[in-house]
Structure formats: C-alpha cells, structure tokens
C-alpha cells in the first residue's frame, strides 16, 4: 500500500469529467479529497491524498497524465518559510494533523510536510506569514 498527497490541475475541457470516480472504480485507489476549487482561469484544482497498491497507483497516475491532468506533489504548493517563523507557537493548537511540531525542550517549531493536509488553518493564525499555501 502506497500513499501520496498530490495536487491535480485539470484543464478547462476536463472540468466536467468524473475523474475521481474513475480513479476509485477503475484503478481501485483510495482517494481522500483535501481541497477542491475552480480558479478564475477556469482550471480545476484538486488536492488529494491517494493510496493503493503500487501497480494500481502507477496505472492511475498514467491515466491522469494521458487525460492531460497535471500532477504535482502537494509539497510544491505549501511553503514553510523558516526565515519568517519566530517560533512563537501560536499555530501549534490550530494545526489539526500535528504537521507543525514543537520541540518542547527548545521551544523550536518545525514543519512536517508529509503530515500537512493543506487545510490552510495556520495561514491566518500566523502573525508573521510564515506559511504559504499557493493552492
């Protein structure tokens, strides 16, 4: 079983296609939708966690690419700006997935991209704009 978090970008012509359905039904993949939107350029964007057998996952990804869906890792859409973080810790109780980690001995904050689901709750909570979600 493999899992990854990706951002899918759909061109205008694919906006009405039930692509998530096909990923689940035809490729036996588990899809957890984290965020979805259609932006003003009329592109669809979908932030998902996708998991399944290695082979199925590979086939599913190929299916997306052949359709013309752009796939990129979620990590590219989320930026933790270490130089802006003051390690105040006000974001710690806000993060629902413990992606923002506090070393309580040193009181130093760090960020675990793998745990981040891109919910964006930390963005308005940070007084120093140390997190950017480009989604």
């Amino acid at each position: 079983m493999q899992k990854k978090k990706v951002v899918l970008t759909f061109p205008y012509k694919l906006i009405n296609q039930p692509i998530t359905y096909h990923l689940i039904k035809d490729y036996d993949l588990k899809v957890n939708i984290l965020r979805a939107r259609i932006n003003p350029r009329e592109e669809g964007r979908l932030m998902i966690e996708i998991g399944g057998e290695e082979k199925s996952l590979e086939k599913g990804m190929n299916y997306l690419k052949e359709l013309g869906v752009e796939v990129q890792s979620l990590a590219q859409d989320i930026r933790w700006l270490d130089e802006k973080c003051t390690h105040c810790t006000v974001c710690i109780p806000i993060c629902p997935t413990e992606a923002i980690i506090l070393d309580r001995n040193q009181m130093i904050v760090s960020f675990d991209k793998d745990k981040c689901i891109g919910c964006g709750l930390c963005v308005p909570a940070c007084p120093y704009k140390a997190v950017e979600i480009l989604f």
């Binding site: 003051t86 390690h87 105040c88 810790t89 006000v90 974001c91 710690i92 109780p93 806000i94 506090l102 309580r104 040193q106 009181m107 130093i108 904050v109 007084p127």
Partner: peptide
C-alpha cells in the same frame, strides 16, 4: 509550556504569542 492546561474540567491545548526560543 507543557502544551495543555485544564480549564473548567477540559484539557485545552496551548499556544504562545511570545517566542521563548527567541
């Protein structure tokens, strides 16, 4: 600083605006 306090019988997670590290 432990990360949790008890308020009205409920465990409440804590955050600080002041940076101890800095």
């Amino acid at each position: 600083k432990s990360g949790r306090i008890l308020v009205q019988g409920k465990e409440v997670p804590t955050g600080s605006l002041s940076s101890y590290a800095r």
